[in-house]
Design a binder for these strands. Sequence first.
DNA 1: CGAAACGTCAACCAAATGGTTGAATAACGG
DNA 2: CCGTTATTCAACCATTTGGTTGACGTTTCG
Lengths: 113, 113
Amino acid sequence: MPLDTVFAALGDPTRRAILAMLLEDDMAVTDVADPFEMSLAAISKHLGVLTAAGLISQEKRGRVKWCKLEPDAMREASIWMQSFGQFEAVNLDDFERFLAAELQDDAPELSKG
Amino acid sequence: MPLDTVFAALGDPTRRAILAMLLEDDMAVTDVADPFEMSLAAISKHLGVLTAAGLISQEKRGRVKWCKLEPDAMREASIWMQSFGQFEAVNLDDFERFLAAELQDDAPELSKG
DNA sequence: CGAAACGTCAACCAAATGGTTGAATAACGG
DNA sequence: CCGTTATTCAACCATTTGGTTGACGTTTCG
């Protein structure tokens, strides 16, 4: 069941941090591991979990294995959550304002004040 | 970290099934357990996990403990996910700050529009 | 009162998870 | 070729997870 693996994968803060990093750019395994205070092997395992969940893909070029975010994998899970529609547009006003500010210029200091 | 517990809770199919049941109506623990082929104690544990994650609440009236869906708990997780699927352009740091601010003032009116 | 229903607790178990280390494999680069 | 870099594999370990059973406290009801 993809929902099982996707949600389980997202349940770990290290893996969410990895996804956040990959949001900015594709990365090699070693570079993904760099900011973390754990072994490369541990990160390699986390990447395996993310890959199994379909949240990222890995492609080997030469001796470097590139990790790439696969945002589509979250779609099903996201849709499942939204089916609990009761929780109503998560403050969509605030969210849209956030997005507008975000997409408008490069680095808005929105949390300021 | 709420995201940890929410995602981890959602990673189990039994617990997702329970949430789906509670979508229809509040239920007593025994009735929640009924359709499952596992012990009442096991379901009780699952309900504990869901409660710890804030995804449901439990209120005891008489000898019956009623379980109620708390859809708000999914908001943060849902927003987090949507940032990947649809809004790759957002700055994740800003986004985390937005989330923090958003959740700080206690579930701003989400009642339907 | 005494029995049954509701639910949790405690002890236990197997399997999965998240981490470690050290050796192994593969590809570059001098 | 040989050393170095990139990554995984294998074995191991501690902890958590998801389940079981049986005993236990409450509340309801005949």
